[in-house]
C-alpha cells in the first residue's frame, strides 16, 4: 500500500524540513481562518474540537462547549435523524452529506449577509467525515459551509421563473389570460368533460362598435374600456371559469360543469351589467354594450375547435340581430 504521508515527508526532507510544531501551527491557523465551520465529535457525539468560525458564529463559550454532547450544545438539531446519519458515518466509514436544498440549515447560525438577504439563519451544506486517528475510537468531522448566497440567488431565480411563467399566461393590458393559455385550458377542459361526460359551455363575447369608440375618444379610452370590462366580467365569474382575451376586443369564457341554461343566465347577467355599467372617460360617460354567443358541449360536438365555431356563429347572430344581446348555438340551429 502506498503511504502518502511518507511521500510527503520524504519530499520535504530533501529541502529544509519544517518542524512538526510549525506544520501544526500552520494547520491550526488555516482551520481557524477558513470560512467553514469545523466541528469534531467523538463516537458518543460529544464535541472534542471546533474552529474559530463556529466559535464566532455561535457566540458560545468555548470552555462549556468542549466535551458537551452536540445535541445539548445545539438543541436545534433533529436528534434522532442526525444520530442515525452520524452512526452511518461511523459504521460504514463513509462520508455523508446534507445539502441546503433538502434542509436549509442544521445549525442555527447567523450569516454574513443579514442586511441584504431575507433568510434568518445561514443556509448550509454540511459534510460528515469519518476520522481515523491513533485513538482506538473513531471521530466524526462536521464541515459547515455557508451557502446563504447560493440559496438567496436560487430563490431569486425561482421567483423570476415563476413570474415569467405567470407573464406568459397573462394578457398585458387586461391582466386576464392570453389567447394561448386560454386555448391550452380549453383543450384540457374539453378532454376532461369528454372523459367524465360532464357539462361544458363556451361563451364568446365582443364589444359592440369598438372601432367607433376608438375613433371618437382615442385609443387610450379604448384601452380603459377593455380593462374595465375585463374586471367587471371577472367579478361575475366563478373561480373555475376560465376567462381569456381571444383577440382585440373579443373575449372568451370556458364554463366547466355548466349546461346551456346556466351559461345563458350568466351571459344575460354579463350583458346587462355591462350595458348599465357607469363607465367614464375624461368626465364623459361612455356607453358600452357587448354581444354574446353561447355554445354547450353536445354529443355531436366532435372537437374543441367545433365548440369555438358554434359559439362564434352564435355571437355573429347576436350581432346580426342588433347587438347588446345573447344568442345560443342551439337556438340558432333550430331557427
Amino acid at each position: 500500500m502506498l503511504d502518502f504521508n511518507a511521500l510527503i515527508s520524504e519530499k520535504s526532507t530533501n529541502k529544509q524540513a519544517l518542524s512538526g510544531t510549525v506544520l501544526k501551527q500552520i494547520n491550526t491557523q488555516i482551520s481557524n481562518q477558513i470560512n467553514t465551520g469545523v466541528l469534531v465529535l467523538d463516537a458518543e457525539f460529544n464535541i472534542v474540537l471546533w474552529n474559530r468560525f463556529l466559535q464566532v458564529h455561535t457566540d458560545k463559550d468555548a470552555a462549556n462547549i468542549i466535551g458537551q454532547s452536540i445535541f445539548i450544545a445545539f438543541p436545534e438539531l433533529p436528534e434522532r435523524w442526525l444520530s442515525r446519519k452520524l452512526s452511518a458515518v461511523l459504521q460504514l466509514n463513509t462520508p455523508s452529506f446534507c445539502s441546503w436544498q433538502q434542509r436549509h440549515h442544521l445549525f442555527e447560525l447567523p450569516h454574513t449577509r443579514q442586511i441584504t438577504t431575507d433568510s434568518e439563519f445561514m443556509a448550509q451544506n454540511c459534510t460528515f467525515l469519518p476520522i481515523d486517528t491513533d485513538c482506538e475510537h473513531k471521530h466524526i468531522c462536521i464541515l459547515i459551509e455557508d451557502v446563504t448566497d447560493v440559496c438567496h440567488y436560487q430563490g431569486q431565480l425561482q421567483k423570476t421563473l415563476a413570474e415569467l411563467a405567470q407573464m406568459s399566461r397573462i394578457d398585458g393590458l387586461t391582466q386576464i389570460y392570453n389567447r394561448r393559455h386560454w386555448q391550452d385550458s380549453l383543450v384540457q377542459e374539453y378532454a376532461k368533460s369528454r372523459r367524465h361526460t360532464k357539462n361544458l359551455s363556451l361563451m364568446m363575447l365582443d364589444l359592440d362598435h369598438f372601432k367607433l369608440l376608438n375613433d371618437n375618444y382615442g385609443h387610450q379610452c379604448g384601452d380603459m374600456v377593455l380593462i374595465e370590462i375585463s374586471a367587471l366580467i371577472s367579478s361575475l365569474l366563478r373561480v373555475e371559469d376560465i376567462f381569456g382575451r381571444y383577440g382585440g376586443e373579443e373575449f372568451a369564457i370556458i364554463l366547466p360543469e355548466t349546461n346551456l341554461t346556466g351559461a345563458m343566465e350568466l351571459a344575460q347577467r354579463i350583458c346587462h351589467s355591462i350595458a348599465t355599467a357607469p363607465l367614464k372617460y375624461n368626465g364623459q360617460v361612455i356607453k358600452v354594450t357587448v354581444s354574446l354567443g353561447v355554445a354547450p358541449l353536445s354529443e355531436q360536438t366532435s372537437s374543441y375547435e367545433e365548440l369555438i365555431t358554434h359559439a362564434d356563429l352564435a355571437l355573429y347572430q347576436a350581432k346580426a340581430q342588433g347587438r347588446n344581446q345573447v344568442c345560443s348555438a342551439t337556438n340558432m340551429a333550430t331557427a
Binding site: 433533529p78 434522532r80 435523524w81 446519519k85 452511518a88 460504514l92 463513509t94 462520508p95 455523508s96 452529506f97 445539502s99 436544498q101 433538502q102 434542509r103
Partner: peptide, 15 residues
C-alpha cells in the same frame, strides 16, 4: 416524517 423523498434518495445513493 424525518426526511423528504428527495433526501431519502440522496441519502441511500450516497451510502
Amino acid at each position: 416524517d424525518e426526511l423528504s423523498q428527495d433526501e431519502q434518495l440522496i441519502d441511500i445513493s450516497s451510502i
